[in-house]
Design a binder for these strands. Structure first.
Lengths: 154, 154
DNA sequence: CGCTTGCTTGGAGCGCACTCCAAGGTTTTA
DNA sequence: TAAAACCTTGGAGTGCGCTCCAAGCAAGCG
C-alpha cells in the first residue's frame, strides 16, 4: 500500500488556522517533496514532472537519493507559479530555465523574454477589464429584470 | 480535393487595411460559416463543435441545410469569446447556454452565475497585477545588470 | 455542363499539462 | 523491530479544447 499521494494532497490546508509550515532560514533549507507540496499547492507528481522536462534547476538529493529542495528552489517555483497564471506555456518557461542554466551571458535574452512577457500580461489585463465591462452590463440587465419581475408579482 | 479550410483560415486579415466584412443590418443578417470565421477568428471546425456540445443556440439553416448565422449568433459568439479569455471552462459556458435556452425562469440562476464569474475575473486581474510586479522587479534587475556589464566593458 | 470552391456529417486524432500506476526502497512512529 | 507513511522511477493514462479526416452534397462561374 503506497499510493494515497493524490488523495492526501487535495486541499490539505483549507479551513484550519495558520499552521504555517514556514520556510527555514538559508543554510538549513532542506525540504522534502511533500513539504514543497504544502508550500506550493502543486502535487508531488507535478514537481517531479517539472524536473523531468527541464523546468527546474538541479535539485539536491539526500544520500539515499530523495529530493531536498532549497529556498532558492521555492523561489523559482513561486516565479513559475506566477508565470503559469499568465497563461505562459510550459515550453516557454523551460526556455527561460535553460537561459538561466546557461549562465550570465544570456542576460540579454532573459531581459527580452521578460519584457515580452510583461507586454503579454498587460494585454491580458486589458482583455479581462473589457470582459468585466461586458459582465457588468449583463449583471445590471439581470438585476433590472429581477426588479421588474418582483414588482410584477406584487 | 476539398480540405484547405484550416490553411485558408490562418491569419487572413493581419496587415491589409480595413476590408471590413461588416455586419449586415438585422433582418438581412444571414452569414455563412466562413463569414463567421472571418468575424470571430474561430475555425469552422470549432464553430460546428460549439454547436455539437450545446454551446450555441439553434442555428438557422438554408433550404439545403447549410448554416446561416444571425447577428444574434454573432453577439453570442462575442460573449463566448470574452468568457473564454477569462479561462472559464467550456462546460460552464454550456451550462449558461442551457439556462438561456430554458427561458425566463432561469434569470436568477444566470444572475448568480454572472456574479460569480465577475468575482473570478476580478481575482484573475489581481493575480496578473501581482505577476506584473514580479516581472517589473526582475526586469529592473536585468536592466541594472546590463548597465553594470556595459560599464565593466568600457 | 464541368470545374472549383465551400459546406455537410460522425468520429478519430492531437497537444498540452498534468495525473496516475506498479513495484519497489526509505524514514518515521509506536 | 515492525508497521505505517513517504519517496523513487519510467512509462502509461486522462481531460480539455480543439483539429482534422473522408466522403459526399451544394453553389457559383465560364
Amino acid at each position: 500500500m503506497t499510493v494515497m499521494e493524490t488523495t492526501s494532497t487535495t486541499r490539505t490546508d483549507s479551513c484550519a488556522g495558520p499552521r504555517q509550515v514556514d520556510r527555514r532560514p538559508d543554510g538549513q533549507d532542506k525540504y522534502t517533496i511533500s513539504e514543497v507540496v504544502a508550500f506550493t499547492g502543486l502535487t508531488a507528481h507535478t514537481l517531479r514532472w517539472y524536473e523531468r522536462i527541464g523546468l527546474m534547476p538541479h535539485i539536491d538529493r539526500s544520500h539515499t537519493g530523495q529530493r531536498r529542495y532549497s529556498n532558492r528552489d521555492l523561489d523559482w517555483l513561486d516565479l513559475v507559479g506566477k508565470l503559469r497564471l499568465t497563461g505562459m506555456p510550459v515550453a516557454d518557461m523551460v526556455r527561460y530555465a535553460e537561459l538561466v542554466r546557461e549562465g550570465d551571458h544570456t542576460y540579454g535574452d532573459r531581459f527580452e523574454l521578460l519584457k515580452a512577457t510583461r507586454e503579454d500580461v498587460l494585454s491580458r489585463i486589458a482583455e479581462l477589464q473589457d470582459t468585466l465591462a461586458v459582465l457588468d452590463r449583463k449583471i445590471n440587465f439581470y438585476a433590472d429584470a429581477g426588479r421588474a419581475l418582483a414588482s410584477e408579482r406584487s
